[in-house]
C-alpha cells in the first residue's frame, strides 16, 4: 500500500475518507488507496447511480464487498489490486474485472453478471451462486463452487484456469464448474484436491485432464466428455479465453472429463421416517 509512513499518527490500514474520483474520457476513475471499504463502496454506488457505466478502481488492497449487491447489466468495473473478501456478493448484473488477485468469497450468492479475475482467488468462491459467470485465471483455494445452484433461466458458470484445492464443487446443485489446471504456480501438485464434488446433486463439473476416483465424493460419476458435452462446453471456454486472453485451441488440446451426480437425491435412503 503506497501510504506514507506515520510517526505521530497511528498507522491505519484504511482511512475513513472519501476516495478521490476523476473522469478520464468515459471512464470514472476512483483511487481507493487506503480508503476504508465503506467509503469506497458508497462512492461506487453513487457514481453508478449517477449513470457511470465504466468504472476503474485503482490501488485496491483488501477492501471488502466491492460490487456487493450492485445491479445494472451494462455497468463495467475494473478493479486494480487485490480485491477483498466477498467481492460481488449478491451482485445482479455488472461486469467486474480484477487485475490482480481476489481474496475469499468471490461471487457469494451472486445472481447475475460477470467476474473476471486475472490472477488467483481464495477459498469459498461462488458459494450458493445462482447465476452469472466467474472466470478466474489462476489457482483457487478450498471449497470453490460450493453449493452453486441453477434455477429456471439462471445457470451459474465458473471457470478456473489454474488448480483447485479440496472440496471443489461441494454440495453442487446446479450450473457449470470448469477446471483447467493450466495457469498454475503449483506445477507439481495435483489438479484438484480431495472431496471433489462431495455432496453434489446437480450441475456439471468439467475438468481438463483426469482425476482419481478417490479424489471424488461418493455421489459423483466420472465420464469422458462426449461430443454433446463439448458442444455445451466449447462456447463457455471460448468466452473465457477471450476474457482471459488465452488460446482456445490450446485449451481444447487436452481431453476433458465430466463429473455429474448419480442422483438428485443422494441421501434419500439415509433416513428412516419413524
Amino acid at each position: 500500500m503506497a501510504q506514507t509512513k506515520y510517526k505521530t499518527e497511528p498507522i491505519e490500514g484504511y482511512l475513513h475518507v472519501a476516495p478521490e474520483v476523476r473522469v478520464e474520457g468515459d471512464i470514472t476513475v476512483i483511487n481507493s488507496n487506503a480508503v476504508y471499504y465503506k467509503e469506497l463502496n458508497e462512492v461506487i454506488r453513487e457514481v453508478v447511480a449517477g449513470g457511470a457505466k465504466h468504472l476503474r478502481i485503482e490501488n485496491v488492497n483488501g477492501q471488502r464487498y466491492i460490487g456487493t449487491g450492485l445491479a445494472g447489466k451494462d455497468v463495467k468495473i475494473e478493479v486494480h489490486g487485490t480485491a477483498g473478501n466477498d467481492m460481488t456478493m449478491f451482485m445482479d448484473g455488472p461486469t467486474i474485472e480484477v487485475f490482480g488477485n481476489a481474496q475469499d468469497g468471490v461471487g457469494n450468492t451472486m445472481n447475475a453478471g460477470r467476474v473476471i479475475v486475472h490472477g488467483d482467488a481464495g477459498d469459498v468462491l461462488g458459494y450458493g451462486m445462482r447465476g452469472g459467470r466467474v472466470y478466474i485465471k489462476g489457482d483457487v483455494g478450498y471449497r470453490v463452487g460450493i453449493h452453486m445452484k441453477a434455477y429456471e433461466s439462471l445457470v451459474p458458470i465458473m471457470v478456473v484456469g489454474g488448480k483447485a484445492r479440496d472440496f471443489f464443487g461441494e454440495y453442487m446443485a446446479g450450473g457449470m464448474l470448469v477446471l483447467l489446471g493450466m495457469n498454475t504456480q503449483f506445477a507439481e501438485q495435483p489438479l484438484v484436491g480431495s472431496f471433489l464434488g462431495s455432496g453434489m446433486h446437480g450441475g456439471t463439473i468439467y475438468i481438463r485432464g483426469t482425476v482419481e476416483s478417490w479424489q471424488c465424493g461418493k455421489e459423483v460419476g466420472i465420464a469422458e466428455a462426449n461430443e454433446a458435452d463439448m458442444a455445451e462446453l466449447t462456447p463457455v471456454l471460448a468466452d473465457y479465453c477471450e476474457a482471459q486472453g488465452m488460446d482456445l485451441e490450446e485449451v481444447l488440446a487436452e481431453p476433458f472429463i465430466k463429473l455429474t451426480p448419480f442422483s438428485h437425491r443422494p441421501y434419500g435412503k439415509l433416513y428412516a421416517p419413524m
Binding site: M1, G62, Q103
Partner: peptide
C-alpha cells in the same frame, strides 16, 4: 489471514 495484509507490506 488476508492477502491484502501481505500486499500492504
Amino acid at each position: 489471514s488476508e492477502e491484502s495484509a501481505i500486499r500492504a507490506v
